[in-house]
Computed example of a mutant assay.
Amino acid sequence: MPNDPAASDDARAHVDRLLALLDLEELGSAEVTISSAPDPESRLGDFTTTVFLGQSHKTPHGRIFGGQVLAQCVIAAGRTVTPAPDEPARPIHSLHGYFMRPGDDRMPIRFSVEQMMDGRSFSTRRVHAIQYGRPILSMSASFQVPATGGLDHQDDMPEVPAPESLTPLTEAFAGRPDDPRSSYVAQRAVDLRHVEGHVSYARPDVERTAHQHVWMRAIASLPDDPLLHAAVLTYASDYGMLEPSIRRHGLAFDDRRLRVASLDHAMWFHRPVRMDEWVLFDLVSPSAQGGRSLGQAGVYSADGRRVATVIQEGMTRVKDA
């Protein structure tokens, strides 16, 4: 069952703040023509661009959380996908995003959505998240009419302890009141529970493994909107993708030599998901090289359905002390 919204007033407030961030303001639309220079008569195509405005959470370092921008891009793109009168809604089935510049959490973000294609089965969108006139993230997304039949299989969900038996990440930070991240973590709308423990946040992992499992769930109930649940899953997916690489090399996020940043992010949405119910991230880092680490995750609902796959590459540099 989804979270009880009355379970905690604080939890409800944190989730409502996330929902407010995802409730973008539509500023308007315009027709755009692409031409091949230098001949302005050589038109490559016409499409509509719609602009939305969004705000940001404050963070300890002043840079916008990447998962927030990705989730807002999902909402912006999805709001421009309008099915025919007798057609069901087209849920998102994939996204590919590149982080270009750090975002400033003091400034609003403009989301420019290019409606690239609407076919009989698929709709394609391109979104640019813009601050100070420059893109901080560029994302392409595809939406598909629900289909039945065809091939259907999935990897089995790994056997791990239930989330109720694990310690929330908020408790791991509760004993560190001087850590500037403590209050930030306490206000998160998503509960994270690491099966292998939260050691990569404070001290190196004893076992140098590039594999970990993390349960995640919104801490209060969410509206019954599939696009919103996909956006919250996207939001949460940016939390732990680089952690397996950090564990593998015996490092911790508190290590002052470590420089970490998301570079690109891709997701495939396989089956419907509710993010006010537990989902398991089965995370692994198959490679790290050249100051970059690759993370990938299979995402499972608590009843064992493979709901998504996530792949992210990030900068993981270790500077001299």
Rank of each mutant, 00 (worst) to 15 (best):
E114K: 13
H96M: 07
P88D: 06
V81K: 04
I92P: 01
M100N: 11
T80E: 14
A89L: 06
P83R: 01
V81H: 03
P108K: 11
A89C: 03
D104A: 07
P102E: 09
Q55N: 10
G66V: 00
S112Q: 14
A89Q: 08
M107A: 15
T59K: 09
L70Y: 06
I64S: 01
P108W: 10
V113L: 12
E87H: 03
G66D: 00
G66Y: 04
Q115R: 14
A84V: 00
A84D: 14
R110D: 05
A76Q: 03
S56Y: 08
A77T: 02
F99P: 02
H61F: 13
T82N: 06
I75N: 09
H96N: 11
Q72S: 06
M107Y: 04
A71I: 03
Q115I: 00
Q115E: 15
R63W: 09
R101V: 05
G62L: 09
L53W: 00
A84W: 05
D86C: 03
T50D: 03
D105F: 13
L70S: 12
V51Q: 11
S112K: 13
V69P: 00
R110T: 08
A71E: 10
E87F: 05
D104Y: 08
L70A: 14
E114Y: 11
K58D: 06
V81Q: 06
L95S: 06
P108N: 12
Q55D: 13
G103K: 05
G78M: 04
F52N: 09
A77E: 05
A76Y: 03
K58C: 00
H57D: 14
L95C: 04
G103T: 10
T82D: 10
G54V: 01
A76P: 02
V51A: 14
S56I: 01
M100H: 13
A84S: 13
F111Y: 15
P83E: 10
P91C: 05
K58F: 00
G67W: 11
I64W: 02
E87A: 00
L70N: 09
G97K: 04
P83H: 05
Q115S: 15
P102W: 09
Q68K: 03
G103S: 07
K58R: 13
T59W: 13
F99M: 08
G54S: 03
A76L: 00
T59I: 06
P102T: 01
R101H: 12
F111V: 00
A71L: 09
E114D: 15
K58G: 02
E87Q: 12
D104H: 06
V69I: 14
L70C: 12
T82I: 15
E87G: 03
M107W: 05
T82E: 15
T59G: 10
R90G: 05
V113A: 10
P102G: 11
A89G: 11
P102R: 08
Y98G: 01
H93Y: 14
G103P: 10
C73M: 09
F52L: 11
T80P: 09
S112G: 06
S112C: 15
H57K: 02
M100W: 04
A77I: 01
L70W: 02
P91S: 07
R79D: 09
P60A: 00
S94R: 13
S112N: 12
G97L: 02
P85F: 10
V81D: 11
H96T: 01
S94E: 09
V69L: 04
R101T: 05
L95D: 01
P91D: 07
P85S: 12
P60D: 02
A71K: 08
I109W: 07
G66C: 00
Q115V: 00
